[in-house]
């Protein structure tokens, strides 16, 4: 399979595919960060996570259409507004869902899976009814288009670089919130021992609600980023949900570092293999490898030792 290419070509292929993998990695990380907070910290299986992401994507699309037709002067910077709106919209919906649905099910984690699956069906159909079944694409401002020539065989798209910078910033922000802020300390306290956390005066219900909201909000930003590399349709979220869960489980559910490492491994493996075989076989092999590794090492890459 490598025989037909010269060493220089192979280097360029790996660099280009590696970069393509980095963009996939960014979307995985953004999706998985939210899920790692919700699933890893709260133990809730949110099957509707992909739909929260798609909500962010639709908000971005709406913002772009709105700005384009009414205030074209700020079009070059609309993306930042869209991201903020996506975060707020998905986060607010997340908090509503937590209040209406999830909080009744904390003692039955498998049932959250079924209920949120139902929610995801409802959201999908809602998107289809509101936005139509056709996929929509977002118009990007001029400065995000085009690509940066690095050497004469390697070039990288600018929106890819933007997505990666964005991912890095959000990851740092989440890490800061979870591990350095007072609120993050409360979240981790509730995770480790809910009763004791309540006894020392933490409002555990409020912590739950905001944690879930934060996770969903990050999914909304992921959706915003997603619009730059793919088109948005009502069922696009479902395509990513299994991958994202595998990313989180593979990384070790409660570890943010593990999530990032596993997103990197999975996206790079998939993207590199995609060049040498069909996309579906690359995906099958990647997923099979993850499942096989998880069977041998069920706790994932970076396991946190938690007393159950």
């Amino acid at each position: 399979m490598f025989g037909d290419y010269s060493v220089g070509d192979l280097g360029a292929i790996f660099a280009m595919q590696g970069f393509a993998g980095l963009i996939l990695f960014s979307v995985y990380v953004l999706m998985a960060l939210g899920l790692a907070i919700i699933f890893g910290q709260m133990g809730v299986i949110n099957m509707a996570h992909g739909e929260f992401m798609i909500l962010g994507a639709y908000v971005t699309w709406l913002t772009s259409s709105f700005v384009q037709s009414y205030v074209p002067s700020i079009f070059s910077g609309y993306f930042f507004i869209a991201m903020a709106l996506a975060f707020v919209a998905s986060g607010a919906l997340g908090m509503l869902v937590e209040w209406a649905l999830i909080r009744h099910l904390y003692k039955r984690p498998l049932d959250t899976l079924l209920a949120t699956w139902g929610l995801s069906l409802i959201l999908q159909q809602a998107y289809r009814s509101v936005f139509g079944a056709r996929e929509v694409g977002v118009e990007l401002p001029q400065w995000m288009l085009g690509s940066q020539q690095i050497t004469d065989t390697i070039e990288v798209p600018i929106n890819g670089i933007f997505v990666m910078v964005l991912t890095t910033l959000i990851t740092v922000a989440v890490a800061y919130i979870m591990y350095r802020s007072r609120w993050g300390k409360q979240v981790r306290a509730v995770v480790q021992n809910r009763v004791m956390a309540g006894a020392v005066g933490i409002n555990t219900e409020k912590v739950d609600r905001y944690t879930f909201g934060l996770g969903c909000g990050i999914a909304g930003i992921a959706g915003s980023a997603f619009t730059m590399i793919g088109s948005t349709g009502p069922t696009a979220g479902q395509l990513y949900i299994v991958d994202t869960f595998l990313v989180v489980v593979f990384g070790g559910a409660a570890s943010l570092l593990g999530t990032i490492a596993s997103a990197f491994t999975i996206s790079q493996a998939q993207s590199t293999m995609e060049f040498f075989m069909s996309g579906s076989m690359a995906k099958v092999l990647t997923l099979l490898a993850i499942v096989a590794i998880l069977m041998v090492r069920p706790q994932g890459l970076f396991a946190l030792k938690v007393r159950k």
Partner: peptide, 16 residues
């Protein structure tokens, strides 16, 4: 149109 709403609602109702 209604089917997915119905199915989703059924999931949630049964679980809750």
């Amino acid at each position: 149109q209604l089917w997915l709403f119905g199915l989703g609602g059924l999931f949630i109702a049964v679980v809750l």
